[in-house]
Design a binder for these strands. Structure first.
Length: 755
DNA sequence: AAGCAGAGCGCG
DNA sequence: AAAGCGCGCTCTGCTT
């Protein structure tokens, strides 16, 4: 029986969602009744002073900008843009969430015309839409021509989603250019804000352009009067176009500049992968994922109990400890009761009250997992440290996932709409936020079960099996590694077999305990090599001596010598060219690799006598690592010399060489697969929708009856995305009703599961 | 009240 | 010695 027939208005839902997101992102509560009036007064006051301050800033002295406030004007402008062939477009909005906020104005620029501003949703201080603006439907009508234009954006996904959710466009278009993505491809080592980039590359001494927050602080754009705001807005479109004009020569595969700078492959990657991905990711975020709220509530209750128990457990153990006397000031810093979430307070307990000594000289007052485990192994306050670890584990799950994720679910769609950043990592990898869907616990079954497929549908989880080690095999071209993959062997067992001269079958995980152990150790060594891990670190991980670790690594490199050579080649490439490239041409610039190990300055920053510098240089090169600090201090005392130690930075850059190529190539491949999947007609027909990307894994959803068919296509596409590799790729797929749920069997045979 | 760095920890 | 690569989130403790 329905009782409440009154549906919330769009405005109410918007408000409610905003509150939910705010609450979820900052636990601090603001009494809402008082805050509304206060906030309004605050905005009014701020706005007044800002506009006063910006009197000189927002003046269109050269008549470069204009406002469009009638439908015909907008149609004309778009017509001109169609003739010109390209148009920069940018939106001003009430905020940063496309599903909550709305477009306030459209900023357009096409060469040969003035940059223009179309006001869409400017309001008075009470939120009432101001008169004199185009009707929404007229703008939407005019924008139907948008498909015919080559559109240039700065972060197209944001503007496209904003326009769609504000009702300005019906469906997404592929951008012609995205200066944000292009900037990442051209230099991943800088900030990628429009103003910052424009200031660096397009500003010819015209004075710096300020970013939004510097001008308007936190005032939403709808409150900015149109007659001031239009200048800021229109300028954005102009700047976007000018940035595009600067960038295009580098990423046009036909241009000479592009070719001479070895950017041709990067340009193809940009055109054929990165740009087509934008619309696909926008659709993915719109789709979102369902969260089982009832289940989540039960989970929260359950874990609340566990958390309390764990907390009491810790306090019980603290009570049993023999705590020494503490100096007054330290005792003050210690809360009563001690805050278990505070590393500082915990450190006082460990290192001042209990007088322990950290096993890690780098972190003399650390309280991290490694240090705790060390004490547990040594049977020092074992139960106390175990209790702390247990508490932390539950606390983490609770705060980051169990309470947070249901709170982020939208009222209007009933789903969670995460945010993927297509160029989140400098290697080209994705990142995800609000929430981060790429670090949802994988071993803890409870949490992933919160995510459920729609009624009648299933999730298809498709992951590359050993994506990165296969790429290592490809880039090193190592005969043995390549052959192992071509013959479908278990790579780690195969390596063990070669290293120790034992039959392959006897090195498989299930053959013996010894085989399993060796396989595990080699797996860690290979992963370590891909991350540039050192001997000491491998030894620590495997709990063996440095000599033993060195032995295994030496054996690996002598048997698989092309791997060692590949590392050296990439380091050489980075040193001579300044960058390394992925298989598909994405670059990772590593200028730090060419830093001198040490720099010498006088205390005033001047030049140092070369003989003195050389004396200290040879001293430092011969020194053990714990002597360095002394030598540097001595130089300061005796010769008034400041020595900058860059060896750490250089070593870091060296480790990144191979890793960037492997991680970056993996990112390329997964992205290529996403484009193929997102554009596949057969999958579209089956109603398959992509939902998530977790680096080597693509998760989507479709009706249960067709999942095998969809999975077959996905496997085919994911494998073909790795075209050009000399090793085969393998993809495992499973279908589940919940993210971590019981697998749905394939008709006929049991489906394979990846590990 | 808001922003920031550091510690710690979740994932591939 | 930034001794293992790439991320984002939560919490503390401090600054503005």
């Amino acid at each position: 029986m329905k009782i409440d027939l009154k549906l919330p208005s769009e405005e109410e839902i918007r408000k409610k969602n905003k509150e939910i997101v705010k609450k979820a992102s900052s636990p601090k509560r603001v009494p809402s009744s008082i805050s509304a009036d206060k906030k309004r007064a605050g905005i009014e006051k701020k706005l007044f002073s800002i506009l006063e301050e910006l009197k000189d800033e927002l003046i269109d002295s050269e008549g470069k900008f204009a406002v469009i406030n009638d439908a015909e004007g907008l149609r004309d402008y778009l017509q001109k843009a169609e003739e010109a062939g390209v148009m920069a477009i940018d939106t001003e909005t009430t905020g940063l969430d496309p599903m909550i906020d709305r477009v306030v104005g459209l900023c357009l620029y096409t060469p040969g015309e003035r940059a223009v501003y179309v006001s869409v949703n400017h309001t008075d201080i009470d939120g009432n839409r101001l008169p004199g603006q185009l009707e929404m439907k007229d703008i939407a009508e005019a924008l139907k021509a948008i498909g015919k234009l080559k559109l240039v954006f700065h972060n197209a996904k944001f503007d496209l989603r904003m326009m769609k959710h504000s009702g300005l466009i019906e469906s997404y278009v592929d951008p012609f250019w995205d200066t944000y993505i292009a900037a990442n491809l051209l230099n991943e080592n800088e900030l990628h804000g429009l103003k910052v980039l424009w200031n660096s590359y397009c500003n010819e001494g015209k004075g710096k352009v300020a970013a939004y927050d510097d001008l308007f602080e936190k005032i939403p754009f709808n409150y900015i009067p149109i007659e001031k705001g239009y200048i800021y807005g229109a300028k954005d479109a102009l700047m976007t176009y000018e940035l595009y004009s600067f960038q295009r020569k580098y990423l046009d595969p036909e241009s000479d500049v592009c070719k001479s700078r070895n950017l041709r492959d990067a340009a193809l990657l940009y055109r054929d992968v990165e740009l087509p991905l934008i619309r696909i990711i926008a659709e993915m975020e719109d789709e979102g994922i369902y969260v089982d709220k009832d289940y989540a509530e039960k989970l929260e209750e359950e874990y609340n109990g566990k958390l309390k128990e764990a907390q009491e457990g810790v306090y019980d153990e603290i009570a049993k400890l023999q705590i020494g006397e503490l100096p007054e000031e330290l005792f003050k810093k210690l809360g009563n009761p001690i805050n278990l979430n505070s590393p500082t307070q915990l450190a006082i307990l460990l290192y001042d009250a209990l007088k322990l000594e950290s096993p890690d000289r780098k972190m003399p007052r650390g309280t991290g997992e490694k240090i705790l485990k060390h004490y547990i192994e040594k049977n020092i306050h074992r139960d106390f440290f175990r209790a702390i670890m247990e508490y932390r584990k539950i606390k983490k799950l609770m705060t980051t996932y169990i309470t947070k994720i249901p709170a982020l679910v939208r009222q209007d769609t009933g789903k969670l709409h995460y945010n993927f950043n297509q160029y989140g990592a400098r290697t080209g990898r994705f990142s995800s936020k609000n929430p981060n869907m790429q670090n949802i616990p994988a071993k803890n079954e409870d949490i992933r079960k919160m995510f459920v497929a729609e009624d009648g549908k299933v999730f298809i989880c498709a992951d590359y099996s050993q994506q990165e080690p296969r790429i290592l095999a490809h880039v090193s071209k190592d005969k043995n590694l390549v052959r192992a993959y071509q013959e479908g062997k278990d790579i780690y067992s195969w390596v063990v077999s070669l290293l120790y001269g034992r039959p392959y079958e006897e090195c498989l995980e299930g053959f013996s305990e010894e085989a399993a152990k060796r396989r595990y150790m080699i797996k860690q060594v290979i992963l370590g090599i891909m991350y540039g891990r050192g001997v000491a670190s491998v030894a620590e991980e495997l709990k063996i001596s440095k000599q033993e670790a060195q032995g295994i690594i030496d054996l690996f490199f002598s048997t698989f010598n092309s791997v060692e050579k590949t590392i050296k080649d990439y380091i050489y490439m980075a040193k001579t060219m300044g960058y390394v490239s992925t298989v598909y041409g994405r670059k990772r610039r590593l200028p730090e690799i060419s830093f001198s190990d040490y720099e010498f300055y006088t205390l005033q920053g001047g030049q140092v006598n070369p003989a003195v510098a050389n004396y200290y240089l040879s001293l430092l090169n011969r020194a053990a690592w714990d002597e360095k600090e002394m030598i540097i201090e001595q130089a300061r005392q005796d010769h008034k010399i400041r020595i900058v130690d860059n060896t750490g930075i250089v070593a870091y850059a060296k480790r990144q060489c191979l890793n960037s190529v492997i991680q970056g190539t993996a990112a390329d491949i997964t992205k290529r697969a996403m484009v193929l999947i997102g554009n596949d007609k057969r999958l579209k027909k089956l109603g398959y929708k992509m939902l998530l990307q977790v680096h080597d894994e693509i998760i989507g959803t479709c009706r249960e009856e067709v999942w095998e068919e969809a999975a077959d296509i996905i496997v085919e596409l994911m494998i073909s995305a790795a075209d050009g590799l000399i090793v085969p790729m393998e993809v495992d797929t499973i279908a589940v009703k919940r993210w971590y749920g019981e697998e749905i069997e394939r008709r006929g045979k049991r489906c394979e599961t990846g590990n």
